[in-house]
Computed example of a mutant assay.
Amino acid sequence: MKKSVSSDVVEKWLKAWCLSRELTMPMKYKSGLMVNVGYVNQKTRYVFSEPNEDFIQLSKQLSETNIFLKVCASPSEIKHKIPEKWIIQPQGFMMSCFHRMNITNNSLHEDYKLEFDFYNSTFVVRIVTQQGELASIGRVVLVDDLAVYDRISTDSKHRRKGLAKFLMKELEKIALSKGVFNNFLVATEEGKSLYLSLGWELYSYYTSIVIPD
């Protein structure tokens, strides 16, 4: 039986997504949420915790390009319910870790150092070389009892050195220091294996559709 998705968790995650990007907070749209993103390639996004009638009807009503509909479901659950004008995007994965991550204590190589920043409830950790080159970066945003990890990336020249794991540990330390133990993120196919190795679990498939230019 499919695990139900908490609309409360999805709303907290989306608030964190907006805080990380310094956007206005999500607004209610029927049973879902809407964000005025304002990017050229993403004007607006609608997010639904299930592929219900509100989601299906909106997919039929909209015809404008670069508006994204996002839903906690797999492509197979929606592809026969939406008009052909919509293009399904690469699969996303909502992931949760409602306990401490499975990360052994490891040290940062002497070639690197840490930098920290903070804005909008968003804590930023950077791993840079001693010469100041950015090697890895990530953010954790605290919304109530949820720590949302966002925009985790490692430069291709610095991969396979354990930097991503070290970065996640540093971000988790920040969340734990604030008394937040519930972790959440949306991963790509590429990033999913890293999080699984750290003790994260698949919370829900997360599918995006858009009408391209």
Score class of each variant (00 low, 15 high):
residue 199 G to F: 01
residue 200 W to C: 03
residue 179 G to I: 03
residue 200 W to I: 04
residue 189 E to I: 15
residue 201 E to V: 09
residue 198 L to P: 08
residue 199 G to N: 04
residue 205 Y to E: 13
residue 203 Y to I: 02
residue 192 K to Y: 08
residue 194 L to M: 03
residue 181 F to V: 10
residue 185 L to C: 13
residue 207 T to G: 00
residue 202 L to A: 02
residue 207 T to L: 00
residue 192 K to E: 10
residue 192 K to C: 09
residue 179 G to F: 11
residue 185 L to D: 10
residue 190 E to G: 03
residue 206 Y to W: 06
residue 197 S to M: 02
residue 185 L to F: 03
residue 177 S to C: 14
residue 186 V to G: 01
residue 198 L to A: 05
residue 185 L to W: 01
residue 185 L to M: 12
residue 186 V to L: 05
residue 176 L to A: 11
residue 203 Y to D: 01
residue 203 Y to H: 04
residue 191 G to V: 10
residue 200 W to H: 01
residue 189 E to S: 15
residue 207 T to M: 00
residue 195 Y to R: 11
residue 202 L to F: 00
residue 199 G to S: 04
residue 196 L to Q: 15
residue 199 G to Y: 01
residue 191 G to E: 07
residue 179 G to H: 06
residue 182 N to S: 12
residue 195 Y to I: 08
residue 198 L to T: 08
residue 187 A to D: 06
residue 204 S to A: 10
residue 186 V to E: 15
residue 191 G to M: 11
residue 186 V to M: 12
residue 197 S to P: 00
residue 176 L to K: 07
residue 184 F to Q: 07
residue 199 G to D: 06
residue 177 S to K: 15
residue 204 S to C: 04
residue 177 S to Q: 15
residue 185 L to I: 06
residue 202 L to G: 02
residue 196 L to H: 13
residue 195 Y to W: 08
residue 189 E to F: 09
residue 197 S to K: 05
residue 193 S to H: 11
residue 178 K to L: 11
residue 205 Y to A: 12
residue 195 Y to F: 13
residue 182 N to Q: 13
residue 200 W to D: 03
residue 189 E to P: 09
residue 190 E to R: 04
residue 188 T to F: 08
residue 181 F to Y: 14
residue 194 L to D: 10
residue 205 Y to F: 12
residue 202 L to W: 01
residue 186 V to D: 11
residue 207 T to W: 00
residue 205 Y to N: 12
residue 186 V to K: 00
